[in-house]
Computed example of a mutant assay.
Amino acid sequence: MADEIFENPRLAYIFDSFDPDRSDLDAYESMVNEFEASSVLDIGCGTGTFACRLAAKGLEVIGL
């Protein structure tokens, strides 16, 4: 169970602002494209940056 403070959605916004360059996700997105995936299970999705990025492209994403 996570600490209560980590359930506050405003914390994710603040956390992500400390590392706005997420070019590290480009390689993973390339793999998704290569496999022509229509759905992705994002295990350990953190604040959901990658999951949201894929969902915005129309993929079905489950974040865990």
Rank of each mutant, 00 (worst) to 15 (best):
M1V: 08
A2D: 04
A2Q: 08
A2P: 00
E4T: 08
E4K: 08
E4I: 06
I5K: 13
I5H: 07
I5S: 12
F6T: 09
F6M: 11
F6S: 08
E7G: 15
E7L: 11
P9Q: 09
R10D: 15
L11S: 01
L11N: 05
L11K: 09
A12H: 02
A12M: 00
Y13T: 14
F15V: 07
F15D: 06
D16N: 15
D16I: 00
D16Y: 01
S17Q: 12
F18N: 03
F18I: 01
F18G: 06
D19Q: 10
D19T: 09
D21C: 07
R22F: 03
R22T: 13
R22E: 02
S23F: 01
D26T: 13
A27N: 04
A27C: 08
A27E: 12
Y28F: 12
E29L: 13
S30N: 14
S30R: 15
S30F: 04
S30V: 09
M31V: 11
N33E: 14
E34K: 15
E34Y: 11
F35G: 04
F35N: 07
E36N: 13
E36G: 13
S38K: 15
S38V: 13
V40K: 09
L41A: 15
L41K: 05
L41W: 06
I43G: 06
G44F: 06
G44R: 10
C45K: 04
G46Y: 03
G46D: 03
G48H: 03
T49G: 05
F50I: 08
R53V: 04
R53D: 08
R53K: 14
L54P: 03
L54F: 08
L54G: 09
L54H: 09
A56D: 14
A56L: 08
K57T: 12
G58V: 08
G58Y: 01
L59Y: 10
L59E: 02
E60L: 10
V61F: 03
I62N: 04
G63M: 02
G63P: 03
L64D: 07
L64Q: 07
L64R: 06
